[in-house]
Design a protein around this nucleic acid. Structure first.
Lengths: 389, 389
DNA sequence: ACGTCAGGGTCAAAGGTCGG
DNA sequence: TCCGACCTTTGACCCTGACG
């Protein structure tokens, strides 16, 4: 026993709990607060005394102090790298069975779903980087967190837009194939999800990639060319898709300080859409969606608790999910844009684009998707992406 | 359970309190007396009976007897180093934080937001009922919870669809006007929200109204006529809007057992869309949206806690919010349907419909909305709804 | 094997609520 | 106003599983 005093209330400590030396009272209080997702509100000035005798007077300030003292619900240090302390971090775990009652063999302990999604994302970003290195002179794109070289960036042409969409589609399929929950689905359902999600997920990706830009009213395409709001209308953006992406998605993402974890979660949630057209096994898709949703909500709550003082993080999961309706609407308009562009012969629509973006009424010829789905991951992707050059 | 009789008044005891076996009454009396430092004085001989029926006759004697029975106001152990007295000692503690639980009056003074929304909804439903009573032979619709009379229901005609949309728009404006958060907005922003939300909110309303139907693949329009999935395609539903409403909204709502509270919350969240076109005061709209979101998430968590065994309620807020992207997409298609129907002269588009559903690019002539917004609630609504007859 | 640490749960006895 | 039936929260104490 190194220390004896509770870092929260100065009572006698009983050891380290959730990352902080604390007493049994503060330990129990913290667990209950996390478990029941309590959101307390201070009735005074947010600076109430939290001492042994007064600790029950204000739960908001007590919880605040727990967090300040280092208590964590998932133990992940908020923004620091910690590859070492991945072992042994404190955490509020899942509820256990009641003591004294019969045990129900519970299944858990598997790797966090959201971490898996981050890995899948990193894989695809590496793929993209290597492709871009070969097709342009830009620095590789490191998972949306690299600083931007404005000097190197150039404005997108109509051709860039078409190529970018094509690239994104190829990467999208690779991404999907790397998700276990996807691979277990029937072939037809795979096609349904790909077709139903392509446009939205491309828009989501473009938006997330663009939050690091500091130049106003501009988005960053998949091949790292830039597309400004006004410029876009000259290259076929009849529906102001670019403007809407910036106003309705990129700026809100910036305000919310959306991070990579949240991005990959939203992407997967969007993708596993059980009510997508022609989906036969809705339950399987729904299960996958809800599994991601559960991880996502948990992480949002954790993040909110680590940032109690910052209102941005309150109701975080809801705020982020509310980006999706706009996203859906914009994606639909993007499809219209592409349809119109094809109608006027402005853009060269290849078969993959036709299959995934222009969702026709007719039951699609599954040839193209079959080919993409059948090929093993990483095999000649570069070749496939560059085939358009 | 050690003893059963209160040592102070012989009432039934509820356990040991402050060091004495006692009832809840004596427990509460002792706490209040100590907390408020009451000094009672006996008006008789200091030997009043303290029994269940007479205990409130003399507070001085009651408190005296509490103390005699062993109640202690301060359990400070005689010495700090008495490791033996680790047993809990009775004490009146300091005042704690408010917990706010018991039904009705809610936390921090102001009425719960979601309750306000339910009231607004009920008001509009009453309005609708009275309108329908005058224009059809159907029983009044009681807030979505009345049983359906299949014999009385009839299939919707194209005319019904147009009328239904018009009715919904009028009620939509009335509903918005009844929300305080709406009335505080600038005139232009009001128009922006109404235009941006009309289609989605009509679809949401139709869907929620339809969950009580037990007949398959059918929705219930605002004037209580029925519209089947197949039948709809014959009356201008080119985009399969009806089918999508059923598959993507109504059925998921049924699976989730969505209730009225959740419906009104989603409606308001959808309505207060800060990124709607032409909105100048995004912050005000966002504040309104997030206020509803907060109430909504809180209620979802409460509902989940009440139904721990039922998996349906896990992540409830997220599951419900995920109805909105589909809803948005469908609403957009409904707009297209209406546009096409007008193009082919199939439907009579009145000015309100033109203004709210067919969001043109041109900055709209604010005449029509101004009129609607200016008129006091409840004034000649019936006349306005029936103007089309 | 066995103690320590840090998760989890329990439930008596504190607390607060609010109609009467 | 105060009372007290009824509810929630607290925290001392105990159980469990991982690790050395």
């Amino acid at each position: 026993m190194v220390e004896e005093i509770c870092h929260i209330c100065n009572d006698k400590a009983t050891g380290k709990h959730y990352g902080a030396i604390s007493c049994d009272g503060c330990k129990g209080f913290f667990r209950r607060s996390i478990r029941k997702r309590y959101h307390y509100q201070c009735r005074f000035e947010q600076n109430c005394d939290v001492t042994r005798n007064k600790r029950n007077a204000c739960r908001a300030c007590r919880l605040q102090k727990c967090i300040k003292a280092g208590m964590k619900s998932n133990g992940k240090p908020s923004s620091l790298f910690s590859t070492i302390s991945l072992l042994q971090f404190p955490a509020i775990q899942n509820e256990r069975d009641a003591i004294g009652k019969r045990k129900k063999t519970s299944v858990n302990g598997k790797q966090d779903l959201i971490e898996q999604l981050v890995e899948a994302e990193n894989l695809c970003q590496q793929l993209r980087s290597s492709v871009i290195r070969n097709t342009s002179s830009l620095a590789p794109y490191d998972c949306g967190k690299v600083k931007w070289n404005y000097e190197d960036a150039r404005a997108a042409t109509l051709d860039d837009i078409g190529k970018s969409i094509h690239q994104q589609l190829v990467l999208f399929i690779e991404w999907a194939k790397s998700l276990p929950q996807f691979t277990f689905l029937a072939q037809l359902d795979k096609a349904a999800l790909l077709k139903g999600g392509a446009a939205s997920i491309i828009v989501l990706g473009v938006a997330y990639r663009s939050i690091i830009l500091t130049v106003e009213n501009t988005i960053c395409l998949a091949n790292d060319t830039l597309l400004g709001k006004e410029h876009a209308t000259q290259v076929g953006d009849i529906n102001c898709v670019v403007g809407r992406i910036i106003d309705e998605i990129v700026n809100p993402m910036r305000r919310l300080n959306m991070d990579l974890y949240e991005y990959v979660a939203l992407k997967a949630i969007l993708f596993f859409n059980p009510v997508v057209r022609d989906c036969t096994d809705q339950d399987a898709v729904e299960t996958a969606r809800y599994a991601v949703l559960r991880s996502f909500q948990k992480r949002c709550v954790d993040k909110a608790l680590e940032n109690m003082e910052d209102d941005t993080f309150d109701c975080r999961s809801g705020k982020l999910l509310l980006l999706l309706p706009s996203l859906q609407a914009i994606a639909q308009q993007l499809v219209e844009d592409v349809q119109l562009a094809r109608l006027f012969g402005l853009v060269n629509v290849d078969s993959l684009m036709e299959e995934l973006i222009l969702n026709d009424m007719k039951p699609s010829d599954p040839q193209i998707l079959q080919t993409s789905l059948a090929s093993p991951v990483n095999t000649s992707i570069k070749a496939e992406v560059e085939v358009e050059d």
